[in-house]
Write a protein that binds this DNA or RNA. Sequence first.
DNA 1: CGCGGGGTTGAGCGCCATCAATTGGAGTGG
DNA 2: CCACTCCAATTGATGGCGCTCAACCCCGCG
Lengths: 224, 224
Amino acid sequence: MYITISDQDSEYNCPRQLSERAKDLPETRLKPNAHLFHEGDRVERIYQVISGAVSLTRLLEDGRRQIIAFGFPGDIVGFPCDGRHHTDCVALNDVRLQPYRLSQLASGRVHSKLGAGLLQAALHEIAAMQDHFMMLGRKSATEKVAAFLTVLKRRTGTPAGQYTQISLPMSRADIADFLGLTTETVSRTISQFRKSRLIALDGAQTVIILREDALKALAEEGTP
Amino acid sequence: MYITISDQDSEYNCPRQLSERAKDLPETRLKPNAHLFHEGDRVERIYQVISGAVSLTRLLEDGRRQIIAFGFPGDIVGFPCDGRHHTDCVALNDVRLQPYRLSQLASGRVHSKLGAGLLQAALHEIAAMQDHFMMLGRKSATEKVAAFLTVLKRRTGTPAGQYTQISLPMSRADIADFLGLTTETVSRTISQFRKSRLIALDGAQTVIILREDALKALAEEGTP
DNA sequence: CGCGGGGTTGAGCGCCATCAATTGGAGTGG
DNA sequence: CCACTCCAATTGATGGCGCTCAACCCCGCG
């Protein structure tokens, strides 16, 4: 999952599955904090998240961390490059994933069905990442967090009375490393939204969206 | 072109061409500032830069701009998503590009040769973009500019006496919008490198790398 | 020679990082 | 059930990096 601004009306149309045919592997299950793969691992299969959530992370020697993306249901993780994974993938909670073999692709030739699905998925991934660049490079902390909550609401929101509620499977530090901020700034920004009655909290991991319109406005304009 | 840190030894192995077979279109030429395509345009072909350079940009309503990538010789630009371009593409100088038809891909089936090449290119693009996230989200201005010059040296450096010289076809504002900075900060950082004798300038558009080792160190550590 | 636009440099400030202290909530054991 | 622990989250205080606003420089061009 990336932060994309342009998807408010056109529901993100993720392929329900990469291929019915190639679905010959049983689903994978992970416990919180378990690794699905590490950076540098040889890629044998790619995965589509069925339920739960994962994070894709890269690390710098000095400890700085960037979360490249979160993987939510429908998302595809494990795109290979030269046969290797380029990120770590860690489960944030209990996760179920559908694996797909990549052996057909190892040969230069693309096995048509899976290859076409994979290509479409990769092209969508590129477009989503492009949107995310704008987020990281040009948006303020307020805009980033507001956009993050807005996207999460669209992807994982569940009705709660007259409002929509979202649960955050990741820590504040994860959100910070995803948005290019610090945990303190994320926390402060969320508190500020709470004080402005844009959201309400039920514990640190559950957010109730009270005024989505205002949040969206903040996500696009920062300080209107 | 993205800012990738991990490529210092393994020379970036861009496909020399997507496909010899599909190379049935004559090369495209652009003058400086000419548009190759606009955001939202229907995608009919994708391009590989032969010579010159282009920028891929996205715009926000309020005028903020992010340069997603620069396209240098060997780079592929115009990855489609749902049949549309998601960035503007503008020539920075005189550019020559090799176009490839996408009509074969319009059908759900992947025409094997071009499809495989396109998939490989897309996967490389994803990996390169992942590296770039770290740059935008977690690096200081010094690190960003140092890394930028280092990558540019690897991609377009030409020998000049005992040193390597690079020419910057883009403006300071372009560099700033690429790295998530302002023109002033880019200019200041470059001046600082010049005063530290890491680089020398021959006009604003030509940089001579005097101490690549120091530059690389700065690119990875910021302030050692 | 005057003009204009990109580049450079300077002064000041604001946003966000940093450092630090406190709170809160989940898990554990008495 | 409560006391205790531990770590995440929150809140506060302070500082610095990079943005903003502005002046100036440089150079190509009419």
